[in-house]
Nucleic acid binder design. Structure first.
Lengths: 350, 350
DNA sequence: GAGTGGCTGTGAATCGATTCACAACGTTTC
DNA sequence: GAAACGTTGTGAATCGATTCACAGCCACTC
């Protein structure tokens, strides 16, 4: 592919119409066409209508590259996700996308698939695209590139909780409270030997902190063990269940709080297959209330939080329509009781 | 005052570096910098290294708007999805994204959420972004805007099957064969009163056609009823199960093929809750093998097809690396037998 | 030593939309 | 009726990367 002769570009019908084409058709200058779209009041009603009609006839779309080159930033927002296998992220993305669409904006989704290298590449990509803001769902630390970008004028908002002592613009539900709700629920059922299984993510740490508080405040004596999972997938959940099953009966927990529903589903599957009765022998609470929680082998008790609303809110903050502090107190977590935590029911579930 | 000496734009640290900055630092012309990135062989080794070093030091990223304005198209590919709630789409998207990333390309994801209006807006957006190609997962008909775009030089590929008599570049698994596998499996188990539940999507029609063929070829007499669902979600599946339950025993099917796993999961849930034994009273086969099929209230028998590979292949076709006909015969569907179709097992499953 | 051709570097034109600065015109006010 | 002001339209400069066309250089040939 060294030399393309390229004698095309007759501009007539084949390539997209430009301001010049519209201007010619409407019998005005290119400046007028531009003002018609960017500052309609700057143009008299008559010309405005002529321009709009001409644009419509030509199917004028406008070249965002040219626009961006001039004004310095795009209409798009970037969304940085670490994985698409977790439905929660899809839900946040859907919420963000709908909100963006309502404001004539668009979302560029980048899925880094847990790879730091790809994450960096995508931030670079967002910069080259001059997105007007970035919505990031952090895996852990906020990447340095994101801070650098912000220094250059591109803001970001985290959907979730950032690691470390710094405080970045972020919105999320109250994870500590969610963890507290989950553990309290188990304690109220009479469970005493609790286990928390979760990854090393900052928001999961908060859930753990909430669970710890519930145990500490408990009137009855209760214990809380912690098992760390590298990533919070169903596969890992099954693996954890296998290590649990190797234990003697005495060391077995009677209540589990999982860092998210995927993990919970994996745990549940592994335990049930091995003959553990849930909730007979053991109660289980997940986190997120993904759609499939209700369809699980035993429908999963979990903590619900409004992911889509959260994504929408993050977009509004990026667009400057909403202030971060206004979101405080919204997005309250809520306990959804299903079958994995019913206090001792017979085997005839179903 | 027409001439401003232009003391602005100190360019020092605050805004992104441009070719000009890199050129100045490396002591070469802007053209040389550009050639270094676009046609490395055009530049001598020494200068190339100086340029790369300078670019690195300045954190040069390149302004894709300027690039696009000149060359006429972007490095990005557009992906048009109708819904994110189905994990299959997420999987196709992930496969496409990984493949794109491997070629230094990026994917712009647009989720139309089943809205034709948003779908049109997004196609317009893709045009304004000058994507170099579009990967669409059709809801039904191929939108006219997509054809118009192709006429102007932006190709598209469908991941799935297009409606209507036209033949568009498309790649998909063999849906007819998948449907055949599903129905044959039920027939082989001795099921005779089959029911197909599915939406009015062209790929689902093929699955239905396969199921019909299996019934027609069956040695034993068997019937196949069809229930149409508007959309194939779990919620709709539950609704369908409710209408089924109103029937007298005699009209009840003993085997169901669902148009996809979401629908199957909803059906399963509704039936089980009402006391129908699966697979005791009725066998059920889904389609897609989403991750949650294995975690269902009764693990779901289903048809697996390689969604991620399909997405990747679509990207390769868009990039001109692969030919459409080369994909024929790959992506073969495969029956995955789980618990919803085991021939009469006791209730002690698990 | 003039001619040929390959390699490497550069100046300048270019892509399309935006916006500054100014002109042209109409209206208001004293 | 002149000055002052507001409104509306336009020419031209601008954003940053790419690429055409050409210049300079070197090696090689006859």
């Amino acid at each position: 592919m060294t030399s393309e002769p390229a004698p095309r570009r007759s501009r007539a019908e084949d390539s997209a119409a430009t301001v010049g084409d519209v201007a010619a058709r409407a019998g005005v200058s290119r400046a007028t066409v531009s003002y018609t779209f960017t500052q309609p009041n700057r143009v008299s009603r008559e010309l405005r209508q002529r321009v709009l009609a001409a644009a419509d006839e030509l199917g004028y779309v406008g070249n965002d590259a040219a626009r961006r080159l001039r004004v310095g930033h795009s209409l798009a927002l970037g969304l940085l996700i670490s994985s698409t296998s977790n439905p929660v992220y899809a839900e946040i993305a859907a919420g963000a996308e709908a909100e963006a669409a309502a404001h004539g904006r668009f979302i560029l989704v980048a899925n880094s698939d847990e790879s730091l290298e790809r994450e960096r590449a995508y931030i670079s990509f967002f910069e080259s695209q001059q997105v007007s803001g970035i919505l990031a769902i952090p895996v852990g630390d906020v990447p340095a590139e994101l801070l650098e970008l912000r220094r250059r004028g591109t803001p970001f908002v985290l959907a979730g909780v950032a690691a470390g002592p710094h405080s970045y613009p972020a919105i999320s539900g109250d994870n500590e409270r969610g963890g507290y709700l989950a553990a309290s629920h188990l304690l109220a059922q009479g469970r005493r030997r609790l286990l928390f299984v979760g990854g090393a993510h900052p928001h999961v740490d908060l859930r753990l902190a909430g669970a710890k508080r519930a145990v500490a405040e408990s009137a009855a004596p209760a214990s809380l063990e912690v098992i760390r999972a590298q990533v919070q997938t169903a596969k890992v959940g099954e693996a954890v269940s296998r290590t649990l099953l190797e234990r003697p009966k005495t060391g077995f927990p009677d209540g589990i709080v999982a860092g998210n529903d995927l993990l919970a589903l994996g745990l549940l599957h592994g335990l049930i297959l091995a003959g553990v009765r849930v909730p007979g022998d053991l109660s289980l609470v997940g986190y997120d209330d993904i759609e499939f929680a209700d369809f699980a082998i035993v429908p999963l008790t979990t903590i619900r939080h409004p992911s889509a609303a959260l994504g929408a809110s993050a977009v509004r903050i990026l667009l400057g329509i909403e202030e971060e502090q206004d979101t405080k107190g919204r997005f309250e977590p809520e306990l959804v009781v299903r079958a994995t935590s019913l206090p001792l029911a017979g085997n005839d579930r179903g």
